[in-house]
């Protein structure tokens, strides 16, 4: 019957999942990640609430924890999606958007406020207005950088990255210089702010950050097929009819919105995006961004929510979340890399 022919054509396919074994692996990893993510969410929401259920105080605490989880989800989504898209666009899996100096700009804004206005300056940078201003400053920097460097006569990713690194370095030393002249108590307040910290985020930022991140993620999701092609490199993408320069600028602009939002929300996090992306590449083992992005997000969320739960609620050391993310994350990354033997 026609069944054999159909079987034949089904067997020879070019889909992003190569075999049933590959499919099984992907589904399994996703299932484990979803379980972990839900588990940590429930754990954070329910662990050790000091008051009995359902009165006013309980709702207050539950609401605060919900906001923390929402912040974690937004940050994980922004970093994971931004890093995967960035690494695809620059065709390099070692660089992260952090290399473009977002963290340094955030640091310099915070430090300048502390330097010029003392502790009051740092405190004044809290609130919706300053949040949006910082967001805007970072987006403007990135957009100028990308459009200038990618559309001008340089038109070269490596020059763009180099300029990003140099700008990051300049801003870094500027912050360093100002920090040296702070008095110890101001410096202390500032330092707390400069570590990426979930508690930096205020609930009132979320109504702005959530839609921004969701919208930009949707835009990148919509471009997933173009991203797949851009991962083949510039000439292959041009050959296949992608307007490379235009797409590159669009992707870079979207990435910078994501990273700027996450940074303005909780402060710089160097490693989270890198880790989520690299783990997603390892475990999804596919080129398709529609499969990579959800997994990268789940890795990011699981790692961040997991370390937040353990540190904040079990060990009562909420400020150290990023430190642990980098420590554990780095180890996991090395182990995975050693076992697989390739990036």
């Amino acid at each position: 019957m026609f069944k054999t022919a159909e079987h034949q054509s089904l067997r020879r396919h070019s889909k992003p999942i190569t075999s049933s074994k590959h499919m099984r692996n992907y589904v399994l990893v996703m299932a484990v990640l979803v379980t972990l993510a839900v588990g940590f969410t429930v754990a954070v929401m329910s662990y050790n609430i000091p008051v009995a259920c359902c009165d006013e105080r309980w709702w207050l605490i539950a609401g605060m924890r919900r906001d923390s989880l929402l912040t974690i989800a937004v940050v994980a989504l922004a970093h994971a999606v931004a890093t995967v898209a960035f690494q695809t666009a620059v065709n390099n899996r070692i660089l992260t958007p952090g290399i473009m100096g977002f963290g340094s700009l955030y640091t310099v804004i915070q430090t300048a406020a502390a330097y010029l206005f003392g502790v009051g300056g740092v405190v004044a940078l809290v609130g919706v207005g300053p949040f949006l201003l910082q967001l805007l400053a970072m987006m403007v920097l990135a957009t100028i950088l990308y459009t200038w460097l990618l559309s001008g006569r340089f038109s070269n990713i490596h020059i763009m990255l180099l300029v990003g690194v140099v700008i990051g370095g300049v801003l870094g030393s500027l912050s360093n210089f100002m920090q040296r002249m702070l008095d110890p108590s101001t410096f202390d307040v500032l330092t707390a702010r400069l570590f990426g910290n979930i508690s930096n985020a205020r609930a009132e930022y979320l109504p702005y950050a959530v839609p921004i991140v969701l919208l930009v993620t949707a835009l990148l999701w919509w471009r997933a097929n173009t991203l797949n092609v851009m991962a083949l490199g510039k000439t292959a993408a041009l050959n296949l009819g992608v307007s490379y320069k235009r797409e590159l600028i669009i992707i870079m602009a979207l990435v910078s919105v994501l990273v700027a939002t996450a940074t303005a929300l909780v402060g710089p996090m160097m490693f989270l995006g890198f880790l989520s992306a690299i783990l997603a590449y390892q475990f999804a083992d596919t080129y398709s961004h529609r499969l990579l992005l959800p997994m990268a997000f789940l890795f990011g969320y699981t790692i961040l929510a997991g370390s937040y739960f353990i540190l904040r609620h079990v060990w009562d050391a909420g400020g150290a979340v990023t430190v642990i993310v980098e420590l554990i994350g780095g180890l996991v990354f090395l182990i995975v890399l050693m076992r697989k033997g390739r990036l």
């Binding site: 390099n92 097929n225 092609v229 083949l232 490199g233 000439t235 041009l238 050959n239 296949l240 009819g241």
Partner: peptide
């Protein structure tokens, strides 16, 4: 269509998936 000599990229692709990208201008992915 045009093919240059240096073609190195970071994604992991099977031969068939790579060839499948040749259909991108027609299929849009």
């Amino acid at each position: 269509s045009v093919l240059r000599q240096e073609n190195h990229f970071v994604t992991r692709l099977t031969v068939r998936q790579l060839v499948g990208f040749g259909r991108f201008p027609h299929s849009g992915g």
